[in-house]
Amino acid sequence: TEIRININGVTIHVRDASEELKKLIEHLLRLGADEKEIREVLHRWEK
């Protein structure tokens, strides 16, 4: 699944996002995570 996240005008594009990762990101956004925090989570997730 491919997702695009727009945070304050900055688009983060994620290829091959699992449903689990998608739910995690949606949850973090609801909690008010910023772009830097989302990128950090994505970076750690890929490892």
Rank of each mutant, 00 (worst) to 15 (best):
E35I: 10
G32E: 04
H27L: 11
V14T: 03
K22G: 08
V14H: 05
L24S: 06
L24I: 14
L31V: 12
L31I: 15
E19V: 09
V10W: 00
V10A: 10
L28N: 03
H13P: 06
R44V: 10
I3E: 05
T1V: 14
H13W: 01
V14P: 02
A33C: 07
I12N: 01
V41K: 04
I12D: 02
A17R: 03
N6S: 13
I25H: 00
K22D: 03
D34W: 02
L42Y: 00
I12V: 06
E20S: 09
L31F: 09
I5H: 02
R30Y: 11
L31D: 08
R15L: 13
K47E: 14
E46P: 11
G32N: 06
E46R: 07
E19S: 09
I7Y: 00
E19D: 15
G32H: 04
D16Y: 12
L42G: 00
V10F: 01
R39Y: 08
I3A: 04
E20L: 06
E2A: 08
I38L: 08
G9K: 05
N6C: 06
K36P: 05
D34V: 05
L31T: 14
L42E: 01
L28D: 00
K23P: 01
R15G: 10
E46V: 09
I25S: 00
R15H: 15
N8Y: 00
I38H: 00
V41G: 02
L29F: 03
L31C: 06
L24V: 15
T11P: 05
L42M: 05
K47F: 03
D34I: 04
R4T: 13
I3S: 04
K22H: 12
R30Q: 15
E2W: 00
A17G: 08
I7M: 09
K47A: 14
A17I: 12
V10H: 12
L21Y: 02
A33Q: 03
A17W: 09
G32M: 02
L28K: 07
V14I: 12
E40P: 00
I3L: 09
E20M: 04
D16M: 09
E46G: 11
K23E: 10
L31H: 14
E35C: 06
A33H: 04
A17F: 06
E26L: 11
R39F: 09
E19I: 07
D34S: 15
E35V: 12
I38T: 01
R44S: 14
H43S: 09
H13S: 13
V41L: 14
T1H: 15
R39V: 06
I38E: 00
A33K: 07
I25W: 01
K23F: 10
E2S: 08
G9N: 13
R15N: 14
I25Q: 00
R39H: 15
I7P: 03
N6E: 11
A17L: 09
H27N: 14
R15A: 13
L29V: 11
H43G: 08
W45G: 04
D34A: 07
K36F: 11
I25F: 03
L28A: 13
I25Y: 01
A17S: 06
E35N: 04
R44A: 15
N8W: 00
L31N: 12
I38Q: 00
V10R: 08
S18F: 04
L21A: 02
D34R: 05
R39I: 09
G32F: 02
E40R: 05
T1F: 09
G9W: 01
N6W: 00
A33G: 06
L29Q: 09
L29N: 04
K36M: 14
E26K: 07
G9V: 03
N6D: 13
S18T: 11
E37S: 13
E37V: 13
A33S: 05
N8T: 05
T11D: 08
G32P: 02
I12M: 01
L28W: 03
K36I: 11
A17H: 05
E26F: 08
E35Q: 09
E19K: 08
R39Q: 08
K22L: 15
E46Q: 15
E20N: 08
R44I: 14
L42Q: 00
W45S: 05
E37D: 11
I25G: 00
L29W: 02
G32T: 01
R30I: 14
I7V: 13
E20H: 04
I7H: 05
I38K: 00
R4A: 14
K36W: 11
K23M: 13
T11K: 09
N8H: 11
H43D: 12
E37L: 14
I5D: 02
K22Y: 13
T1G: 13
I25E: 00
D16R: 07
K36E: 10
H27C: 13
N8L: 04
I7D: 03
V41M: 12
R4Q: 15
H27G: 10
E19G: 07
L28M: 15
R44G: 14
L31Y: 10
E19L: 12
E37G: 08
K23H: 12
S18L: 04
L24F: 13
L24G: 02
G9Y: 00
S18Y: 04
E20A: 11
I25L: 14
E19Q: 09
I38S: 00
K47S: 14
I25C: 01
V41H: 08
E35Y: 13
E2D: 15
R30F: 15
E37P: 00
K23I: 10
K23T: 13
I5N: 02
R15C: 03
K22I: 15
G32A: 03
E35H: 08
N6R: 09
E46K: 05
W45C: 15
E2I: 07
E46W: 02
G9D: 12
N6Q: 10
K47D: 14
E37M: 14
L31S: 13
L24H: 09
E35F: 10
V41A: 14
T1S: 11
E2M: 03
I3H: 10
I5Q: 02
I3K: 03
G9E: 07
W45E: 06
E20C: 06
L29D: 02
E46H: 12
N6G: 07
H13K: 08
E2Q: 08
V41F: 12
L21I: 07
D34Y: 03
L29C: 06
V10E: 09
K47T: 14
L21D: 01
I7S: 05
D16G: 15
R4W: 06
N8D: 10
L31E: 11
A17D: 05
H13Y: 02
R39P: 00
T11M: 07
A33T: 11
I3G: 04
A17E: 05
R15Q: 11
I7T: 06
R30S: 15
V41N: 06
E20G: 07
E19H: 10
N6K: 11
W45R: 02
R30C: 06
R4K: 13
R44W: 14
L24K: 12
G9S: 08
